[in-house]
């Protein structure tokens, strides 16, 4: 039932090596190289902070944490979710020139893209945490980020496994996912506090991305453990499990089809 994940695990070295190649590929030909991987997200955090804090005067401290810190942490995890989702859903279509003429275990491709996003995410995370350590006292709860990174990785793996075969078959589905991602960005409480949603907060929380984003903030800012909301944690993992099973099914079912039509 989870064959493709087993394969990803067995070939983790290949996944790792290929994701490093992805980084090289992404910044090949640029002078500054992977620095661009930092500059871009930092700029975006700065722009959102300016718009909300200075421009619209909406950025009040959230539960005692400064808005900029709250925003930055949320954005760091969101960038990871966003890039991982976007890239892994295109894992097959984007690599069709290799798939078509090189025999290798293509089931690992979504994992390659997710690991690539993860590595760039780690760099950004370290930089943000280093900056933050000046204003907020680090605590043991910061280590809980490891758990939420893991949760994020698993969520992405499931989503990638489900969407990548679909995107490979239908270009339209790829376009549809782009729209969904924009929708998700605004519907996930990244720039705004979930408490403001009032009675809609249950619906907002159904979005599993929120579990990861909120978990980051809980770990860095609010010293709150994932075991403190066990139902939500259980819900999240059930969603991941369903995605895994569905993803495995999708891959098995769709692979012969997308190999033919790509």
């Amino acid at each position: 039932m989870f064959d493709i994940y087993k394969e990803m695990w067995q070939r983790r070295k290949m996944v790792h090596a290929l994701s490093l190649h992805e980084i090289k590929r992404e910044y090949a030909g640029t002078v500054l190289g992977s620095i661009w991987g930092l500059v871009n997200p930092l700029m975006r955090i700065a722009v959102y902070w300016f718009v909300f804090q200075i421009g619209s005067r909406a950025g009040k401290p959230v539960d005692g944490a400064p808005y900029i810190a709250w925003l930055a942490i949320g954005m760091v995890s969101w960038f990871f979710m966003n890039d991982g989702f976007r890239l892994s859903s295109r894992a097959f279509r984007g690599k069709r020139h290799i798939i078509k003429n090189t025999p290798f275990p293509i089931a690992i491709l979504p994992a390659v893209q997710i690991m690539y996003s993860f590595y760039t995410h780690i760099i950004l995370l370290v930089v943000i945490l280093a900056v933050m350590a000046f204003s907020i006292d680090p605590s043991w709860f910061w280590l809980q980020v490891v758990y939420y990174d893991f949760a994020g990785l698993m969520l992405l793996l499931g989503l990638g496994a489900v969407t990548a075969p679909l995107v490979a078959i239908s270009k339209d589905f790829g376009r549809f996912l782009d729209t969904v991602l924009i929708f998700l960005f605004w519907m996930t409480p990244i720039l705004w506090n979930v408490d403001n949603a009032g009675r809609f907060d249950k619906i907002v929380k159904l979005n599993p991305f929120h579990y990861v984003v909120q978990g980051y903030r809980d770990s860095i800012l609010f010293k709150s453990g994932f075991w403190e909301h066990p139902v939500y944690t259980l819900y999240f993992w059930i969603v991941v499990l369903i995605l895994f099973a569905l993803g495995n099914y999708m891959y098995k079912r769709m692979k012969p089809i997308f190999l033919d039509i790509m």
Binding site: M14, A17, H21, A28, G29, T102, F104
Partner: peptide, 26 residues
């Protein structure tokens, strides 16, 4: 499988491609 272009990434250098293809071959 030897094909003229198989597993060669045009963005990467020849040297990196050697490793890239090596990885793909396991």
């Amino acid at each position: 499988f030897l094909d003229v272009s198989s597993g060669i990434d045009p963005e990467l250098s020849g040297y990196e491609n050697i490793f890239m293809k090596g990885v793909l071959l396991g």
